[in-house]
Each structure stands twice: as C-alpha cells, then as structure tokens.
C-alpha cells in the first residue's frame, strides 16, 4: 500500500487535481521547467537571509531600547594621587538628585575585561590608570537632562562626563530599525523578482508546449484548466526549491549565530527567537504560493493572447 491514495484523498484539489496530475505530464520535461527549482532555491535562500536579518535585527533593536534605556553613565578619571577622591561626593550628589533610583560603580574587573580585547597582553591592566564608571538607574517614568546633571557634578570633579543611555540607545535602535527596514524591503524585492522569474519560466513553458496547449484546447480544456497544469508544476518545483533554499539559509543563520557568540563582548549580536524560526520554517509555503500565483497569472495572460 502506498501513501499516494491517502494524499490524493487529503488533497484540497480532490479528484479534479488527480486528473490534472495525469495531464500535467503532457507539459513536462522541458528545460525551462528544470531550471525553476534551482532558481527558486536561490531566491528562497536570499529571501530567508533577508527575513532573518529583518527579524533578528528588529528584535535586537527592541532589546537594546529596553535593556539600555532609563539610565545615566558617569565617567570619572582615575583616583587622584594628591587630592581627595571625588567619587563618594559624586555618588552622594547623584543619590540626592530627584529621579535617581540607584547608583553603582562598575567593578574594576569588568572594566579590565572590556579593555582586555583592545590592549591584549601587552599592558598590565592592574597597574594602569583607568577611568571609572558609575551607573545611575532612574525611577520608572523619569528622565534627566544629562547636560544639567553633568554641570552640577562638575562641582565635585571638573572632568566628569555624563552619558544619557536613552540618547545613544535610541540612536543604536534607530540604526537597527533602519537595517531591519532595509532587510524587509530586500525580502520583498526578492519575492517580486522570484515571482517575475517564475512567470517568465511559465511563459517559456507555455511557448515550448504551444502545440500541446493548442491540442488541449481543441479537446475542450479551458484556459483555467490549462493554467492550472502549469501552476501545479510550478507549485511542486517552488516548494522543492523553497525547502532547499530556506534549509540552507537556516543553516547559515545558525552558523552565524554560533560564530557571533564568541564576539558578544564586543558586538551586540542579533539572534532569532522561536517566532522568527517559525517564520523561516513556513517560508517554503510562501515560495510555493508565489510560484502558483505567478505561474497561473502568466499562463492565463499567455493564453489570452492566443
């Protein structure tokens, strides 16, 4: 017993599609049709990469906005040798500032860890004068003007610098959103190009099989029925190409994510969540749908001209 009868029973096209499956053999075996799975696989690969970039970077923008916003970073010089350390006073001033919830000093080990990749083993980080950092978190719903805070803190340390997380986090997020938008546009363009390629192949197949199509018409086939034969073949080839292309793209994304893990200390790494992987998984169905629609429209237009 084979699976074919069951699949035919489950087919949304039912009995009519089975008849079309038989008749589709008359429009097969041409070189134009053989190209389609490879072209679709390439397009699906590129579309999947663009989609992964759009989803991954878009998600990263959200995380960066949420993770880094709502705080200030205060940078001080190394402890002075000949005068009192301004750090306790600055902490005191910050805690007295309305809206500031907590203040914490970045541990020296963390600063060393951040500097290590840049300085390597050439310098003894322990003995090196290094800037110090305070992280001030703000109460929910509060915002402070970094310039005003910095002006006040200069009473304690003229060289102090204050960075507003919201400003640069928003710049980073905007950059990420721009990258994501570009990736969406790229995915859309790839989809349009794919549809055009499928339509061109469908038109070429119609021309190659013009005699057979003329005969089918003479035997009473409607244009809709004939275009269905072409669309059916394109669906199968689109799905095959889609699965191959998306599979290769998923492997590429997985390898990139793994490679990025090692560089996470230096670079913010976009990554795909479960929904993004699910979106990639259904992309072959999208490729199949695009192939069916493009092939059917191209075939109907070809038939209408004849």
């Amino acid at each position: 017993m084979t699976i074919r009868p069951l699949l035919q029973k489950l087919s949304p096209f039912g009995r009519e599609e089975s008849a079309a499956a038989v008749a589709a053999g008359a429009l097969s075996g041409d070189s134009a049709g053989r190209i389609l799975p490879y072209a679709t696989a390439l397009m699906a690969f590129l579309a999947a990469l663009a989609l992964a970039a759009a989803l991954g970077v878009g998600d990263a923008a959200t995380r960066w906005s949420a993770g880094f916003g709502g705080g200030l970073t205060i940078q001080l010089g190394a402890p002075p040798a000949k005068s009192a350390d301004p750090l306790p006073r600055i902490v005191e001033m910050l805690l007295a500032t309305p809206g500031v919830a907590t203040v914490s000093e970045t541990p020296e080990e963390d600063i060393n860890r951040l500097l290590a990749p840049w300085l390597g083993g050439l310098v003894d980080l322990e003995g090196l004068p290094k800037p110090r950092f305070l992280e001030a978190t703000l109460a929910p719903g509060t915002s402070l003007d970094a310039a005003i805070v910095e002006a006040r803190l200069r009473d304690a340390d003229p060289n102090v610098k204050v960075d507003d997380h919201d400003v640069w986090a928003e710049k980073l997020a905007e950059y990420a959103r721009a990258v994501a938008r570009t990736a969406w546009v790229a995915a859309l363009l790839i989809g349009i190009i794919s549809a055009a390629a499928v339509a061109a192949v469908a038109a070429a197949r119609m021309a190659i099989h013009a005699d057979a199509i003329r005969l089918l018409r003479q035997l009473g086939a409607t244009d809709r029925w004939i275009s269905g034969l072409i669309a059916r073949a394109s669906l199968r080839q689109g799905l095959i190409g889609g699965v191959i292309g998306v599979g290769l793209a998923a492997l590429a994304v997985f390898l990139v994510e793994r490679a990025a893990e090692g560089a996470s200390a230096l670079l913010p790494t976009p990554r795909l969540d479960g929904w993004a992987w699910a979106a990639l998984a259904i992309l072959p169905l999208g490729a199949g749908a695009v192939a069916v629609a493009a092939a059917r429209i191209a075939a109907l237009l070809w038939l209408r001209r004849r």
Partner: peptide
C-alpha cells in the same frame, strides 16, 4: 502528446471533461 503514455493520451478528453482518473 509526448510525455503521456498511450493510455493517458486516449483518456485525456475524459480527464478534461472532469472524469475520475
């Protein structure tokens, strides 16, 4: 039609008319 075995060539008008395979 090349690409179709003889049996299906002959069955084609019935398939087009909607008959079961």
């Amino acid at each position: 039609l090349e690409g179709l075995p003889l049996l299906d060539n002959i069955a084609l008008p019935r398939l087009i008319a909607g008959a079961a395979v």
